[in-house]
Computed example of a mutant assay.
Amino acid sequence: MRILLVGEYSRLHNSLKEGLEALQHEVSIIATGDNFKKFPVDYSIHPKFFLDNKFLVFCNKVFFRIFKTDLQLAEKGIRFWFLLPKLKNYDVVQLINSNAIETYPFFSKFLLKRLFRQNKKSFLLVCGEDTPIIDFLLKDEVKYSILTPLLQNKKLAPNYHFSLKYTRKNYRDLYEFVSKKVIRIMVSDLDYKLPLPDKILIPNPVNIDKISFEPIVISQKIIIFAGKNNSSAIKKGTAFFEEALLIILKKYGPRVGIIKVEDAPYKEYITLYNQAHILLDQVYGYDQGYNALEAMAKGKVVFTGAESEFTEHYNLTERVCVNALPDVDYLVNELSFLIENPDEITAIGKRARAFIEKEHHYIKIAQKYLDTWNLQ
């Protein structure tokens, strides 16, 4: 089969591509590379004029202030339009989001109409924020979510511009358009299965052949890694980790080491956490995101989403990661337990790797996608 994957935010589509290629399929990715993360793509729609050129970045800011129009979005759409002649005769097209092209919604619909028309089957993968996800979370019916800070403090609305745009009519119309055009909608983890219970869940693929497992050996300090993406720090609850780390440093001093990173490219990010034993990911999740899964594949102990919905879904009786909560005292207690019981760090790390191999193996997951696409 010839398969086109549209969009890339976390390396999900790259890992899926690697699994599909191992099964002898031809796969291409078209995406921006997600700005500073710089994920590999086959066809790039990265807005290099209005993102990489400092003068044009300044001009765009002025233009936006006057006309409320972001030329970065226009550039992405134009680049996609020029590539359309090459995006033909694919057996499957999969969007990673209804807004996978990341241009203006009216332009997205125009481009997607052509894309869908010149290819065979089309699918939508919900693996992040999108209209039905934000609609569900705004109802405030779950114990917490990425919108909890906003629901507790409306003044944080400017920090949720990206999330709330999906409730606007133009983005809502785009989602409705895509949902009617695709054959099927899938979700990538329980954080999206809860809002969309009728959709099929296909877990994130993780290329374990590219991620080597090294059993944790603690000879001196216990190293804790805290990566920060400034654009999503509030939604991930990073402040809870930061406060907990201050207490841990005072409590344990030279027994622990802290690695802090902000907005690092993907290749740099994964290199920097290699020497860590514990990785702090997010507090507002029910399941693991992509960074957490890759760290677990390396055998790290990850503080992330691991709620009862997760343990029940996978029938787990022992911890493969630590369920992080928006509670500083709880985080301090969990970190303290691991620091004082380093054997447990080693044990969780081994179970984490085994879990990834069983439930997230990239070739097994690629086959699940093939089975789903071929059901139609």
Rank of each mutant, 00 (worst) to 15 (best):
residue 238 T to E: 00
residue 209 D to I: 00
residue 43 Y to V: 11
residue 168 R to V: 05
residue 237 G to L: 07
residue 16 L to R: 01
residue 27 V to T: 13
residue 286 Y to C: 03
residue 376 Q to T: 12
residue 29 I to A: 10
residue 31 A to P: 00
residue 75 E to C: 07
residue 298 K to R: 14
residue 176 E to D: 09
residue 158 P to N: 14
residue 152 Q to Y: 00
residue 171 Y to D: 02
residue 337 F to L: 05
residue 105 P to V: 01
residue 54 K to F: 11
residue 141 E to R: 09
residue 79 R to P: 11
residue 158 P to L: 12
residue 299 G to L: 14
residue 170 N to D: 13
residue 341 N to F: 03
residue 262 E to D: 03
residue 34 D to N: 13
residue 307 E to M: 14
residue 204 N to S: 14
residue 336 S to K: 11
residue 140 D to Y: 07
residue 210 K to L: 01
residue 59 C to P: 00
residue 360 H to E: 07
residue 355 F to K: 11
residue 76 K to C: 13
residue 161 H to W: 13
residue 372 T to V: 10
residue 301 V to A: 09
residue 233 A to G: 01
residue 168 R to D: 13
residue 176 E to H: 11
residue 309 E to G: 12
residue 376 Q to L: 02
residue 352 A to Y: 09
residue 109 K to Q: 10
residue 323 N to Y: 00
residue 173 D to P: 10
residue 126 V to Q: 00
residue 24 Q to G: 07
residue 39 F to Y: 13
residue 205 P to L: 09
residue 6 V to E: 11
residue 141 E to I: 10
residue 251 K to T: 13
residue 291 N to S: 10
residue 293 L to K: 05
residue 29 I to E: 06
residue 39 F to A: 10
residue 351 R to W: 02
residue 176 E to R: 14
residue 131 T to Q: 03
residue 193 K to T: 08
residue 140 D to P: 07
residue 178 V to T: 09
residue 22 A to Y: 15
residue 36 F to R: 09
residue 191 D to I: 01
residue 91 D to V: 03
residue 221 K to H: 06
residue 297 A to W: 01
residue 340 E to H: 07
residue 285 G to I: 10
residue 170 N to I: 06
residue 182 V to R: 04
residue 96 I to H: 02
residue 251 K to M: 14
residue 125 L to H: 01
residue 238 T to V: 10
residue 260 K to C: 05
residue 236 K to A: 11
residue 184 R to E: 15
residue 108 S to A: 04
residue 248 I to R: 01
residue 303 F to C: 00
residue 123 F to Y: 13
residue 265 P to L: 11
residue 268 E to M: 08
residue 375 L to V: 13
residue 346 T to H: 11
residue 229 N to P: 06
residue 75 E to F: 10
residue 327 D to Q: 14
residue 160 Y to G: 04
residue 43 Y to L: 08
residue 217 V to Q: 15
residue 232 S to K: 00
